[in-house]
Design a protein around this nucleic acid. Structure first.
Lengths: 257, 257
DNA sequence: GGCAAACTGTTTACGTCGTATAGCAAGTAG
DNA sequence: CTACTTGCTATACGACGTAAACAGTTTGCC
């Protein structure tokens, strides 16, 4: 589970995330900065995926040697965490969104979009509670969307947890399907065919009566949705379900019978 | 992104997942089996986390040398995938569940429970579409729960995607928080304190008006929920929201106005 | 102004990892 | 019986994260 077996220092993590380290008063002037290192890591991940990000690689790209990075970041794990934090900033909500529902829809769509652009972030294990500036910013955006619904702070935080879970879970599934070629080195069509073969060979009416019926009725031959590789329709559908559920909760909460 | 840079073979993956390899007709009798290798990997992961699973380690545990494993499994990536597949079998639904809602609730809870017991599975990247027997079994369970609601196959599959996303996303957040000590080597109390420090130091009414108000009103000093480390209350709350949304969809679908 | 302390970057090294490949032995098809 | 297939071992390689020592740079303090 833990990738880094040494002890992380939560205070150091906070300093790094919020960029509040005291500047040194002695010694040579640093030629690098933490931000440069993180940005370089992000650039490599954007171009080649997170597996291409090694300390050597980042150092090479910056024109320094590997161990110099450790002057700025305690470990690779910390670097990955900082990369995810910096790479996942959400935009400001557009003006004109009316009501909690539109705002939360925008918020969820924005985050899924961030993940779609930076899907490598989904492969970085989450090791510690989300407490970086962009993560807190996101929290605030969602909470602000619900401000005025009459819900308590605890209830709003609960809804935030639900939406966050749904958004991230969906993004992961979407990435798995959309990026299968990059992940496995095999064409997506081959996976689609294999899925179809699985359906015809292994799905049977005895063990899978409902699925077998659906497959037969709807003529599924694979899983791919060529015009919707990031499962946007599924996401929108699911988001509406969740928002409907929230609507119902709010109704019941502010107008109990 | 891709961990294994060679080409995966979807047909081979299917064979391995469904255990339908032709038995060899020549050569020495194998002393090992794929199932033994997978089970050993699972045992190591259960005891020490997935990072402890290396080909060497698995081979050592079995009393063989590392390279012999490659007679049975093409790569470590395949081994991890097989481990996740075998480790995440859901139970049979209990008798007496009435209605789609109770069945889907049970289903969702069962999967979260599987993740709670085998939380290392959340750290294994998903590289290919879910098509193993236990994954298909889960699909069938959810679809069967909705059979008879009047929804189309496509709609039911859509709901399956939503629930899957939510369940997995939530499990990941829960694991992040519950396992912070194991993941970082630092006591959870230290992270809780750091979170509290973050709230007091960096959350401010100018940039985070809603969050700052909530924190002030409700006296949050950290994030931990000591009696609910796996966020079961949040999960149940969110699941109800989603189920409410599904209920509404079903109503509208089978009784449109 | 000089010295000590703190800091930056480099070099070297280590242990661990996944996996390629060659070699030998076991067992079967023809 | 021979050739082929298959199972396992041994050896090796490249890659990785990171520890620790070293040399040079810069500042605080006396």
């Amino acid at each position: 589970m833990a990738i880094d077996q040494r002890q992380a220092d939560p205070n150091r993590t906070l300093e790094l995330l919020w960029d509040v380290q005291a500047a040194p008063t002695r010694g040579p002037k640093p030629a690098l900065s933490l931000r440069q290192i993180v940005d370089t890591g992000i650039a490599i991940a954007d171009a080649e995926g997170v597996a291409a990000v090694s300390m050597r690689r980042v150092a090479d790209e910056l024109g320094y040697t590997t161990m110099s990075l450790y002057r700025y970041v305690p470990s690779k794990t910390d670097l990955l965490e900082l990369m995810v934090e910096h790479a996942s900033r959400t935009a400001d909500p557009p003006a004109g969104l009316t009501g909690w529902r539109e705002q939360l829809r925008w918020w969820a769509n924005e985050i899924v979009e961030v993940y779609r652009r930076r899907r490598w972030a989904l492969d970085v294990p989450l090791n510690a509670p989300p407490m970086g500036p962009n993560q807190i910013r996101r929290m605030e955006q969602a909470l602000r969307a619900m401000d005025g619904t009459g819900l308590s702070g605890g209830e709003m935080l609960g809804i935030l947890v639900v939406l966050s879970g749904y958004v991230r879970g969906h993004a992961q599934l979407a990435s798995t399907l959309a990026d299968v070629e990059a992940r496995t080195g095999t064409p997506q069509a081959a996976w689609d065919q294999a899925y179809g073969r699985m359906l015809t060979t292994f799905v049977n009416p005895a063990e899978h009566p409902t699925l077998a019926r659906i497959v037969a009725e709807e003529g599924f031959e694979g899983y791919a949705e060529p015009d919707d590789e990031w499962l946007g329709d599924d996401f929108a559908f699911g988001l509406d379900l969740v928002l409907d559920g929230i609507a119902r909760y709010i109704e019941r909460r502010v107008s109990p019978e």
